[in-house]
Amino acid sequence: MSESGPGKSSDHPTLLVRDREGHDLLCFLEHLIPIEGQDYALLSPVDTPVSLFRLNNDAEPVPITEVASSEPILSVADVVLQEHDLVLVRSAITLTVSGELEEPDQDELDELEEDDDVDEDAETFELLVSFMVDAEEYGLYIPLDPFLVLVRMVDGQAVLLSDDELDRVQPLIEAELEEREWPD
């Protein structure tokens, strides 16, 4: 077992991101990228991000993208996670789970990567817990792809981007990161 999050050491710099509702998300600083005279940062959450899905028998799970912090579904999820010594955190941007999680099975991950039927653009998730609320089944899933948060740095603070700014700078940041990884 390992600490929740991507397994970073405590000497990695961290930044706090706050959304409009006042929720916080503590993140590790992964990359600092200057674009057009402005500093942007790629961050990864300290705690493990999770996604909520409605489970429908044999059909594909349906993601639930909007859920209020006081939603009864989250109260039940809290109780189920406590049975595993985990805590559901209503963080900025995403729900997270804090506590010790088991590492995903590397053999299963390798099989998923080798599977020709898997859409390369599709996100891959691993079920953490499932539970029932009002005769509906739900699940909290851990994304197996890295969960990164793009922010603008203002006076040492991480500021979430508007949708327009994200659309404008994301391709520039991706190009910069690609250049950093594969210089000519």
Rank of each mutant, 00 (worst) to 15 (best):
T96I: 12
D105V: 11
T96R: 03
L109S: 12
L101H: 02
E103C: 04
A92E: 15
F125T: 02
L128Q: 10
V129D: 06
S75F: 05
V129L: 05
T124S: 11
E83N: 04
M132Y: 11
E120W: 07
L144E: 04
R90F: 14
P143H: 09
L112S: 08
Y138M: 05
F131H: 13
V129G: 01
T94C: 01
Q82G: 05
Q82C: 02
M132A: 11
L109K: 15
D110W: 09
E83W: 03
E102I: 02
Q106E: 15
H84L: 15
P143Q: 00
L74M: 10
V79L: 15
T96C: 15
F125S: 00
A135F: 08
S98E: 14
L88F: 12
V80N: 04
L144W: 05
F131S: 06
L95F: 07
V133A: 01
V97I: 08
D117L: 13
A77F: 08
E100F: 15
L140A: 02
D78Y: 05
L144S: 06
G139N: 04
F147E: 05
T124V: 13
F131R: 04
D117P: 00
D145F: 01
L112A: 14
V97D: 04
A122D: 13
S130D: 12
E111G: 08
G99V: 13
E103N: 10
E126C: 01
G139I: 10
V118G: 04
V87F: 13
E100L: 13
E136R: 11
L74Q: 07
Q106G: 03
L140M: 04
S91C: 08
V89P: 00
V89R: 15
F125Y: 11
E123A: 07
E108H: 08
V79F: 14
Y138T: 08
A135T: 06
E103S: 12
L127K: 08
L128W: 02
S91Q: 14
S98V: 04
Q82K: 08
F125E: 00
S91F: 03
L140F: 06
L128M: 09
L109H: 09
D105G: 12
V97A: 05
R90N: 15
D119Q: 07
L88T: 12
F131N: 04
Q82W: 01
G139C: 04
T96G: 09
Q82I: 06
V129P: 01
S98L: 15
D107C: 06
I93D: 00
D107A: 13
S75C: 08
D105Y: 11
S75N: 11
G99S: 01
E102C: 03
